[in-house]
Write a protein that binds this DNA or RNA. Structure first.
Length: 476
RNA sequence: UCCUCAGUAGCUCAGCUGGUUAGAGCACAUGACUGUUAAUCAUGGGGUCCCUGGUUCGAGCCCAGGCUGAGGAGCCA
């Protein structure tokens, strides 16, 4: 007989049928009731063992974490906490779990502690819920694009390009680091390296996605991305997953529509497919909030927040309007901003938070940033001083999406390269697409973990990726 | 990288103005109970007070340096 997953037993119970369930003990209460979880759902199934039917020595091995296989009959529960339970007839211990060594307990443990036990934290309700939700979101990403005729493009992870300037890069080399070959100028001689030139881990698949979009029409990337920045925040990782759609013939308005539809689709998908896990995380957040001061608590419960985003249009404003709102705010007049506001500045975190969390209290799309503070490939507007860039800001997270209409005009792009000190021979292949059948196109980048944070309500990005890579942390 | 805060039992934490043998809850062991819901009750074992150095008659507590973690900032997704 094959095992039945707990999710199925709980959702479609067949009273009286014999089943085999396998999983990990969460609690063993009253020497009689096992709360068993197999990961298929946040919920446990209650297994009832009558002491006289089993070896006492076996029952003594049932600790939190013990892996067991149970044969038994599905029955209506006599207790109050559950509808069905399994009356055990056979019990096999598959894996013992010494409670004196196993660090995970059913009582509260801090996320910081569990982060140091990354190999075991999957066994907690919280991380079980988070990683099931992460899966659903990833699936929703592919489904969204597939339904709209996009092609999934695998952009390279190792790249010889260092032109994007999106951040510090991790070097990839097979040179002997103890005896690095040098050229006549005393520089590292990468001609002897694996690729015959210096290579790095990618910081973005965008440029490659543009190449493909200018032939396939609509593409998206969804893969790991690496930044060697020494960032120590709850919103940054050295290795994270990024989604980058790129669409030929789209302008900045189409781009905004796509991004808004995309976010709403993914959040609606988890509302429709993972409500149990969301409910657990919502309750967890509510518990957590009770320990916080009033002004740090969530204004809305998690599920309501997600529904609100799904059901309401995002606010769309220009950078210039954003600056006006900030300068006319009481907050500004009372000099509560640490950084001053004037046209031309890069918006600081405090400014973005004010706009999103205080002024609009909903997701906001800001467009038309000054050209000087944005990347070289963004399309110059007719005013000659702003670019067709867009950032989507959400409450609690800040920037979740950054995108733009791309500069498709060869001469303008060459001029921008010169302004940004990007040697043309480094990205000659990118420039060639503007020479051979160029067309307007647009795209954006979304940090997948930021979306997982928003959907789960988790407040530290290290808790929404299985094995977070951050400065000084690559143990697992 | 900068600023702030923290580090005490396996976990979550308390520890007064520097003063005798460092505490609680959970976990664990033993026993009781046996339809429990993070079961409950009783008893018990369990400590490199982050590390190094200093001040002091005396340091978990004060000082200096370091390590680690968290929050915020910058960079960004």
């Amino acid at each position: 007989m094959k095992r039945t997953e707990i999710k199925q037993i709980l959702s479609q119970p067949q009273i009286g049928s014999e089943v085999i369930v396998k999983g990990w003990v969460r609690t063993f209460r009253n020497d009689q009731f096992i709360a068993l979880n197999d990961g298929s759902t946040i919920h446990n199934v209650q297994v009832v063992v009558n002491a006289q039917d089993f070896e006492e020595n076996d029952l003594k091995r049932l600790y939190t974490g013990t892996c067991i296989s149970v044969t038994g009959k599905v029955a209506e529960s006599l207790g109050k906490g559950q509808n069905v339970e399994i009356i055990a007839t056979q019990l096999e211990i598959l894996g013992d779990c010494d409670p004196n060594e196993f660090p995970i307990q059913m009582k509260k443990t801090s996320l910081e502690f569990l982060r140091e036990k990354a190999h075991l934290r999957f066994r907690t309700n919280t991380f079980g819920a988070v990683f099931r939700l992460r899966h659903h979101l990833a699936y929703a990403v592919h489904q969204f694009f597939n339904e709209r005729g996009f092609f999934y493009l695998h952009s390279p992870i190792v790249t010889g390009s260092d032109a994007e300037g999106a951040g510090e890069m991790f070097k990839v080399t097979t040179l002997d680091l103890n005896e690095v070959p040098k050229d006549e100028n005393g520089q590292v001689d990468h001609s002897q390296d694996f690729f015959g030139k210096s290579a790095n881990l990618t910081v973005s698949g965008q440029l490659e996605a543009e190449l493909a979009a200018l032939a396939l029409g609509k593409v998206y990337t969804f893969g790991p991305t690496f930044r060697a920045e020494n960032s120590n925040t709850s919103r940054h990782l050295a290795e994270f997953w990024m989604i980058e759609p790129e669409v030929a013939f789209n302008d900045i308005i189409d781009n905004m529509d796509l991004a808004e539809d995309f976010l709403k689709y993914c959040l609606k998908y988890v509302l429709d497919h993972a409500i149990d896990d969301l409910t657990f995380l919502q309750d967890r957040e509510a518990q957590e909030d009770k320990t916080k001061p009033m002004d740090e608590r969530q204004a809305m419960p998690l599920i309501d927040r997600l529904k609100f985003v799904v059901e309401n249009p995002f606010e769309r404003i220009t950078y210039t309007e954003a600056i006006d709102i900030l300068m006319n705010s009481n907050h500004y007049k009372k000099k509560k901003f640490k950084y001053d506001v004037s046209w031309g500045i890069d918006l600081q975190s405090e400014h973005e938070r004010y706009l999103v969390e205080k002024h609009f209290q909903k997701p906001v799309i800001i467009t038309g940033y000054p050209a000087a503070i944005k990347a070289f490939y963004m399309r110059l507007n007719e005013d000659g001083k702003t670019v067709a860039a867009m950032d989507i800001l959400v409450p609690g997270i800040g920037e979740i999406i950054g995108g733009s209409q791309r500069e498709e005009r060869y001469e303008v792009l060459k001029e921008k390269c010169a302004q940004f000190n990007i040697p043309e021979d480094h990205i000659w292949w990118y420039l060639e697409t503007r020479k051979f059948g160029t067309c307007p196109h647009a795209g954006f980048g979304l940090g997948f973990e930021r979306m997982v944070m928003y959907a789960t309500g988790m407040t530290n990005i290290r808790d929404v990726i299985p094995f977070p890579r951050t400065p000084l942390n690559a143990e697992f």
